[in-house]
């Protein structure tokens, strides 16, 4: 039923968007994650540029991807896919090349976050914000603080763990703990990770990807994997909590602005991206969400507390060990098979 509604809604959007685009420019259709832009930014953009923003939101990369596929890449001018969807969508011809001559603010970005394996030379994408998954724990209650992913397999953590309800994250953790890449596509390594995860299952109290900070704040769980932004907020509420980047390295993601191949309002799309790259806007995004900014110029504007937070901005050594999630192509079917086995055999 939900699917039916989705298709109907998608068609309705397509018709609507096509009609509106013909009417002329001065409009930009932005399709972003839920709760992912600070309040007032859209209004400020419209006020300063005179471009009207039509804003829609999604809950997952997968939902956004499916909708664009069905609309033939039309209907939206700016989208915000995660790193591993940038490479997938670019390969499938779903993205329009970025014209950097229209982005004077591109120079504000830190070179450390550009030219990543998922999009060489940033042909199709511009970093929006980034973060990663590490370990949050309550050492006071546990009597110990985990320092690496493999620690979570120790008997002390029996029945008190939270892991994310996301197969790429959970297998990423196991693969990292076993010394492999979290983008590994070798079926043998994936099976090994599955066997290792099976041993972890009795320790898991809950799977949660909606808002993993909540069970921590309710003291229902004492340790587990969590996005750094969520951890930053949880630590503000419960000082006993402590966040660590695991020794094996964190699971990093980067959400990037991109333009769908069928976008109609190219100038407006570039103007919007350029606006987001302004240091004062990028600063607002860190303050609101606790996720790191790739914007070097914005760093100088941040409070000392935020700028020096190792939760939000991992140090160089951690970064060197961590990896960005990349598209794994057809291997996702193998991951999914083992994920079903992991949960279905309970």
């Amino acid at each position: 039923m939900k699917r039916t509604l989705l298709i109907v809604f998608a068609l309705a959007c397509a018709v609507f968007a096509a009609g509106a685009a013909r009417a002329g420019s001065g409009v930009v259709y932005v399709y972003n994650w839920t709760e992912y832009i600070p309040e007032g930014v859209i209004e400020q953009f419209s006020e300063e540029t005179g471009i009207k923003v039509v804003y829609a939101t999604y809950e997952s990369n997968e939902a956004m991807y499916a909708k664009l596929k069905m609309l033939g890449n039309k209907g939206f001018d700016v989208i915000v896919p995660s790193s591993y969807f940038v490479s997938k969508m670019a390969r499938e011809g779903m993205l329009h090349e970025i014209d950097k001559s229209k982005l004077p603010n591109f120079k504000n970005l830190d070179a450390a976050y550009l030219d990543q394996p998922f999009d060489k030379d940033n042909k199709y994408s511009v970093p929006y914000t980034w973060g990663g998954t590490g370990i949050l724990a309550n050492p006071g209650k546990l009597g110990t603080m985990p320092t690496k992913w493999a620690d979570l397999w120790k008997p002390e953590y029996n029945g008190v763990l939270l892991v994310q309800d996301d197969l790429r994250e959970v297998f990423g953790m196991a693969l990292k703990a076993k010394g492999y890449s979290l983008n590994d596509t070798d079926p043998k390594h994936i099976e090994e990770a599955y066997k290792y995860l099976k041993k972890l299952m009795p320790s898991i109290r809950t799977f949660n990807s909606d808002s993993p900070k909540v069970p921590f704040m309710n003291e229902e769980v004492d340790a587990g994997m969590i996005w750094n932004g969520e951890a930053y907020v949880a630590m503000g509420e419960v000082p006993a909590l402590n966040f660590v980047w695991p020794e094996e390295g964190g699971i990093l993601w980067m959400d990037c602005m991109a333009i769908p191949a069928g976008a109609k309002n190219l100038d407006e799309a570039h103007a919007f991206i350029n606006f987001i790259l302004r240091p004062d806007i990028a600063k607002k995004m860190v303050e609101e969400w606790g996720y790191a900014t790739p914007n070097k110029a914005a760093m100088a504007l941040l409070d000392d507390d935020m700028r020096t937070s190792r939760v939000i901005f991992p140090d160089k050594a951690t970064m060197a060990k961590s990896e960005f999630q990349d598209d794994i192509g057809d291997a996702i079917v193998i991951y999914e098979k083992y994920w079903n086995l992991l949960k279905g055999e309970q």
Binding site: A66, R205, T206, Y335, K343
Partner: peptide
């Protein structure tokens, strides 16, 4: 089951959702 049971079990609804969204099968 996801919210109150901790999502430790896979149910038919989860299975179908995963096929459509995660593995795109």
């Amino acid at each position: 089951p996801d919210l109150l049971g901790g999502g430790k079990n896979l149910l038919v609804g989860n299975f179908i959702k995963n096929q459509f969204l995660v593995s795109r099968n």
